[in-house]
Simulated scan of single mutants.
Amino acid sequence: MTPDQVLDEFRDAGALLQGHFILSSGLRSPVFLQKMAIFSEPARTERLCRQLARVIEERFGKIDIVVSPAIGGIVPGYETARHLGARAIFVERDPGGPFSLRRGFSIPAGTRAVIVEDIVTTGLSARECLAALKDEPGEVIGAACLIDRSGGRGEIGLPLLSLVSLDIPAYPADALPPELAAIPPVKPGSRAIG
């Protein structure tokens, strides 16, 4: 699957939106990738995550565990793990706190894990996920996402693989270009702005 075919999946699902969006990071952007439009279609999700599993396996080899940040990463993490023949687990936020492994999830010694995200903008969720795994005895060897919208600038602390890398601009609310400032903002994401 080529990057253009991946983007066609987003276009065909109505998941590539244009306007003025408040991202989960709090930054503003003229483009929003509504991944839930993708994840609501199992066949489309399966195609994309099968390709992501191939990319992961080609780069990292055998993977035992896929870890994803809740909520947005759970669906692609599970589906990618299915294609890797791996376990799928996730980190979630303690009420008012950071991500942590709960529900008896762990990364045992001798296992190899990757973090799987949906969309990376700044890399914050993946960094927080990695921080939650620092005391696990298994090895977290890399991260992967469907689309890296940072153009490779989203620093995670691990190698980051993606099906598509785009350089989509994102701006602080007080530094908007005039054409974006002229459009009323919409917040379609799920994470509260702090």
Rank of each mutant, 00 (worst) to 15 (best):
G189H: 07
A81W: 04
L161C: 02
S100F: 10
I115N: 06
A15T: 03
L133F: 03
D12R: 15
T122F: 05
Q51S: 14
C129A: 12
P188K: 08
L16N: 12
S190V: 14
A175L: 12
I63T: 05
F105L: 08
A13R: 09
F90P: 04
R82P: 07
A126G: 03
I141S: 01
C49P: 02
G152W: 08
G189N: 06
G19W: 01
I89E: 00
G157T: 05
A70E: 09
P177S: 08
L161H: 08
R44S: 10
S25F: 05
E155Q: 14
R191M: 15
F39G: 10
D167P: 12
E139F: 10
M1F: 13
M1E: 13
V186F: 13
L27M: 10
L161T: 05
V114K: 00
G157I: 02
G72T: 04
I56W: 03
L101R: 02
G104N: 00
A173E: 15
P108T: 08
A181T: 05
L163C: 02
D167E: 14
D167R: 11
L160Q: 06
S165P: 12
A192P: 14
E9G: 14
L163N: 08
K35F: 09
V66T: 07
R44M: 06
P30Y: 04
I147M: 04
P108N: 12
L17G: 11
P3S: 05
P188L: 11
E41F: 14
C145S: 10
L17F: 10
I65K: 07
R103Y: 03
I22Y: 07
H83N: 10
M36Y: 15
P184L: 03
Q51R: 15
L176G: 01
H83E: 00
A143T: 05
R28V: 12
D167L: 09
A113R: 03
E155I: 14
L160S: 02
L48R: 07
V116H: 06
G85K: 00
P76Y: 02
S150Q: 02
G157D: 01
G96E: 00
S106Q: 12
Q5I: 11
G14W: 09
I119L: 11
P177D: 06
G61V: 00
F32A: 08
E179W: 09
S165G: 13
F90W: 11
L84M: 01
G189F: 05
G110E: 00
V75K: 05
S29M: 06
R47I: 07
F105D: 07
G189M: 05
L101C: 08
E155R: 15
F60C: 05
A15W: 03
I89Q: 03
I168K: 08
P188T: 05
I107A: 01
I63Q: 07
D148R: 01
V66P: 08
V120F: 09
V91R: 02
H20E: 07
G104E: 04
A15Y: 09
G26Y: 04
V75L: 11
S190H: 15
I74P: 10
Q34G: 07
A132L: 02
L16Y: 15
I22E: 09
L133P: 04
S150K: 04
R59E: 14
R127A: 05
F99Q: 01
I168E: 12
R11H: 13
